[in-house]
Amino acid sequence: MGCFSSKVKRQFPGHEDPVSLASQTAFTVSEVEALFELYKSISSSVIDDGLINKEEFQLAIFKNRKKENLFANRIFDLFDVKKKGVIDFSDFVRSLNVFHPNAPQEDKIDFSFKLYDLENTGFIERREVKQMLIALLCESEMKLADDTIELILDKTFREADVNQDGKIDLSEWINFVSKNPSLLKIMTLPYLRDITTTFPSFVFNSEVDEIAT
């Protein structure tokens, strides 16, 4: 067992003990091990180095590595907790933990705020929202006139930017999503409840003596 664990650690930099990761997240030990099966497949899709780079992340989302996307890049940057340009296994588990159906709502709100605060200023600014709208239009091949985009921004900031200073702060965001709960839908992945069923092979690669449920 000891040999197996050290081999895993050598091949997968940042690999943390599944029992320890489970104790810090909403996942069980079995679920962490099932996530490791998914992680192995993503992290070996382009370069088999035990780490997920941006190209591998995009490939996992779009099944097409050539597709550059502002939002997938932004999620990658937030998953890259240690800011090393790659996602290691502990980053992967801790970040996905926010998307667990049982994760605290405050964590989901906080993550979504950071997601849209493209320039990490602590505010979601109008120009950032415009940039995201334009990126969405490019991605979806939908066309909207610039006047219409401005009208959408006016409406959004009228509703969200309560103190009308041209930017949305965290407390305004908390208030806004409480009135528009559908905005947090993307922050919950029901798949995470069934991860052991989706990746049953974790049982054969388990590092722990007894699988906790």
């Binding site: 998307f99 849209y116 709208l133 969405l136 992945l189």
Partner: peptide, 25 residues
């Protein structure tokens, strides 16, 4: 035509924000 959606409702439809695809084999 009145604008009914807010910007974030539109943005959240991006495929790049759909992490469900990570689990689809």
């Amino acid at each position: 035509e009145p604008v009914t959606m807010n910007a974030f409702e539109l943005i959240s439809t991006s495929q790049g924000l759909n992490l469900n695809s990570l689990f689809e084999k």
